[in-house]
Amino acid sequence: MSLFADTFRRDIRLGLRRKGQILMAPVFFMMVSVLFPLAMGPDPVVLKLAGPGLLAVAALLAALLPLDTLFRDDDADGTIDLLLLSPAPLSLYVAGKTAAYWVLTSLPLLAVAPLMMIVLDMPLRMAGITLCALFPVTFLLNLAGQTGAALALGTRTGSILLALLLIPFYIPILIFGASAIDLARNGLDAGMPLFLLWALLAVALPAAPLATAAILKGLNE
């Protein structure tokens, strides 16, 4: 367990030192949400139709943005090689990294989400249910993303390749996330997609770090 906590603490410390990188995801998220009404016009009807999906797409793009750096430094300075030699389970290291990455990039995003709801003409009483959807969405995006980052570790065309790899895995997350917010926006019951999101999270939370650890191990043999 201490490997998880050590990795988490170290990555948070390193992340807080690089302010630009933490701010990148929420700033990107806000940029997409603000640019869209400017492009499509401020018509409340359009915003009501497009707002929920837009929020989910913006979260997806923001999660993708800094992903290729996730394991890069640890690979370059030999941390991963060292961990592979030690008996400690690599999956705990991966889980610690993902948790830190989520706190650094997704938590600020969730914090500005209500602000973006105002911009997209969504009633603030929906903030609870929106966050209830965006929380598993961002976490699932990160879990899928870390697996992709491990697969693409050591390639030169990191970002573009990652986007290509991850589209099929992001699609179910996007569908359920956007549907949940959309159903709630139209005053309908969003229970089904929310349940599916949290169920996916319950499966992916243990499965993704194990798979990622196996990939890191397998690729570095």
């Binding site: 693409a152 050591g154 390639t155 390749l161 290509l164 790899l165 690729l219």
Partner: peptide, 19 residues
């Protein structure tokens, strides 16, 4: 794309298999 992205051929094969 993944199978071709690595300089090390074996690594590309493994990554593509995992994917």
């Amino acid at each position: 794309a993944l199978a071709d992205a690595f300089e090390n051929r074996e690594r590309g094969l493994k990554a593509a298999a995992w994917l």
